[in-house]
Design a protein around this nucleic acid. Structure first.
Length: 335
DNA sequence: ATTGAAATAT
DNA sequence: AATATTTCAA
């Protein structure tokens, strides 16, 4: 139907100058009273600095955090702010649901990626607040990306509520989560809205889930139709993930409030491991997909030990629980 | 208001 | 061609 007016990403241009410290306080609507006892910008360690000193990190064989540019920080903070704004009152039932969610929103190394240059990767922020943060192609990337990728797109307003979401990329991690939830619910109760809620992925819409669910059902159907037929090569995502079995669960729809769940716990729901399940740590590396008119960043799983297939992106599921960080967006219609 | 499936779009 | 989004009838 509609045609894009031509402007592609009105999404991510941002003000060139922004510092957390003194100047950056435009129309953010800050409440000065709230800032009384707080440390000033100079007193805080810059977000763009890694929390873990490189040396310490290497001592433990931990991959040093990706360096973050001021741009990244800017986005992250914006995200946070947006998030905080729209999650204001919660007398809603979904709030209760959320705390009951078997899939805590913590932040680990799962990823939600969006097409375009705003793929989001989880930082190792210890808390549960998912934010952070576009990894910008810095560090070792051959191309040093200046802090303003998009040339112009001057048609920018912070007020733009009707921004269209970047195309969601179903990474193995995301899909894993999806499967986990669907499995947990049982095919019967697995409907988009519920799935979405249980997945507890910020920025994920019901539509996203519905779409994926549709595809997944198609896949299941096709599979039971010809069980022996090797799954189509295009089924990478699905094949690496055990199909949801008819696990019927009497959902305890009780007062969830009591469980202030710790970090993690095991959920005795799925016993199966992926076919060739290696539990190797997956590190996300920005890959650039080129498609004629534009370069797209996405995150692909990669072995720390080296890439193994260059032509075929082989997806496999991560098997660690953690959570997903994503790009929080203004959800246009919400009532 | 949601769901599920088909039509589009990228 | 594959996969995600949008539309639309139920």
């Amino acid at each position: 139907m509609g045609e894009e007016a031509g402007s592609d990403d009105e999404f991510d241009r941002l003000s060139a100058a922004d510092d957390v410290s003194s100047g950056g306080d435009d129309d953010d609507g800050r409440v000065l009273e709230w800032e009384l006892g707080l440390p000033s910008g100079e007193e805080l360690t810059p977000l763009s600095q890694p929390l873990v000193p490189p040396q310490l990190a290497s001592a433990f064989s931990v991959k040093p955090e990706p360096a973050r540019t001021a741009l990244d920080v800017h986005r992250a903070s914006q995200s946070t702010i947006f998030g905080l704004r729209r999650v204001a009152p919660s007398s809603d039932a979904s709030a209760a649901f959320r705390s009951f969610s078997p899939f805590p929103p913590a932040a680990a190394d799962e990823t939600v990626a969006f097409e375009g240059d705003d793929p989001v990767v989880a930082g190792e922020s210890s808390g549960k607040i998912p934010l952070f943060g576009p990894i910008s192609p810095c560090a070792e990337s051959p191309e040093a990306e200046p802090s303003t990728p998009q040339p112009d797109d001057s048609s920018d307003d912070h007020s733009a509520r009707a921004l269209k979401r970047p195309r969601l990329v179903w990474t193995p991690q995301l899909h894993k989560r999806f499967i986990d939830v669907v499995t947990h619910l049982g095919i019967k109760n697995a409907v988009p809205k519920t799935i979405m809620q249980l997945m507890n992925v910020e920025g994920l819409t019901r539509e996203n889930v519905a779409s994926h669910l549709q595809k997944y059902r198609l896949y299941l159907k096709r599979m039971q139709g010809i069980p022996d037929e090797g799954p189509s090569p295009s089924d990478h995502l699905f094949t690496s993930t055990p199909p949801a079995t008819q696990s019927l669960h009497e959902q305890h729809v009780h007062t969830p409030m009591r469980y202030a769940m710790p970090a993690m716990f095991s959920m005795p729901v799925f016993g199966m491991a992926p076919p060739h399940g290696h539990g190797r740590p997956i590190t996300m590396v920005p890959a650039v997909h080129n498609h004629g008119n534009g370069a797209h960043h996405a995150f692909e799983p990669q072995h720390p030990y080296g890439a193994f297939s260059e032509r075929h992106k082989d997806w496999y599921s991560g098997n660690s629980f953690g959570s997903i960080a994503s790009y929080p967006h203004v959800t246009p219609k919400n009532k």
